[in-house]
């Protein structure tokens, strides 16, 4: 591995945590502070009365904003910009949504099963107009199980770096180089967990297939929506969202 010495591993931990802090979109203190700020019954009804396409468009925009932060996270990760551009794109196309799903556990409140969305907290019912109750339920369940691990900000940083830098993504041109970076990040994550006596977390992280399955469900639902409302997707969805998913 290129990061062999302890000092280098510690530098990598610092780099990943700093990259994450600079690109986490919303600070944890702010998300915790907002927990009492719940959507009223009327506001929830107003979301539920929106048309399916309007709600899809809103969610596509919110998701795209989150993904832009993940792109910035990737760019700051030591070694990422040294990969060839094909591989940078392969890793982001496959991993950006997965990173957003992991990051979402910070915006989820397990006490009342709500998530921070457009300035307030709301439950699954807020997203009813999307017409994908099963997908939304699965995403909330995922956040619920991840939030039970009580991951620290640094643990989320290192975990999401490894979600992104995955040498098994199909289509990589310089697989060896990605493998080396992944190996360094694994060392960094393990080192940090040892240092903080949190090695137990490793066995409790969700299997990779769970994130993959959520992303596939999202793509399937988008396909159905795009079939029914091709003009909405074409005219109103963010270009980056279309580039990644449609």
């Amino acid at each position: 591995a290129p990061y062999a010495s302890l000092t280098e591993i510690e530098h990598l931990v610092q780099n990943v945590c700093k990259s994450y802090r600079e690109t986490c979109q919303l600070r944890l203190e702010e998300l915790l502070r907002q927990r009492a700020n719940l959507f009223s019954r009327e506001e929830v009804s107003s979301y539920q009365r929106k048309s399916e396409w309007e709600m899809w468009e809103r969610c596509a925009h919110r998701l795209t904003e989150a993904i832009q932060h993940v792109v910035e996270f990737a760019k700051r990760l030591s070694g990422f910009m040294e990969l060839c551009q094909n591989d940078q794109i392969i890793l982001l196309k496959a991993g950006a949504m997965e990173v957003v799903l992991v990051r979402m556990c910070r915006a989820y409140n397990a006490d009342n099963h709500t998530v921070f969305f457009e300035g307030k907290y709301g439950g699954v019912e807020l997203f009813r107009a999307l017409g994908c109750g099963e997908l939304i339920g699965s995403i909330f369940d995922f956040s619920h199980s991840l939030s039970a691990l009580r991951l620290s900000e640094d643990e989320i940083a290192l975990y999401t770096a490894l979600v992104l830098i995955n040498a098994n993504r199909p289509g990589l041109q310089e697989k060896r180089k990605v493998e080396q970076l992944q190996c360094s990040l694994e060392l960094a994550f393990h080192h940090h967990l040892c240092k903080t006596h949190r090695q137990g977390v490793l066995a409790q992280l969700p299997p990779k297939g769970r994130l993959r399955s959520l992303c596939s469900q999202h793509l399937e639902k988008l396909q159905v929506f795009q079939h029914l409302h091709p003009i909405v997707v074409q005219a109103a969805f963010p270009p980056l969202y279309k580039e990644l998913f449609s």
């Binding site: 832009q68 792109v71 910035e72 760019k75 700051r76 910009m81 551009q85 940078q88 794109i89 982001l92 196309k93 270009p239 980056l240 580039e243 990644l244």
Partner: peptide, 16 residues
Amino acid sequence: QEKHRILHKLLQNGNS
């Protein structure tokens, strides 16, 4: 490359 125009652009921009 054209297929990923926006991603290319985001990756080429400096850290902002």
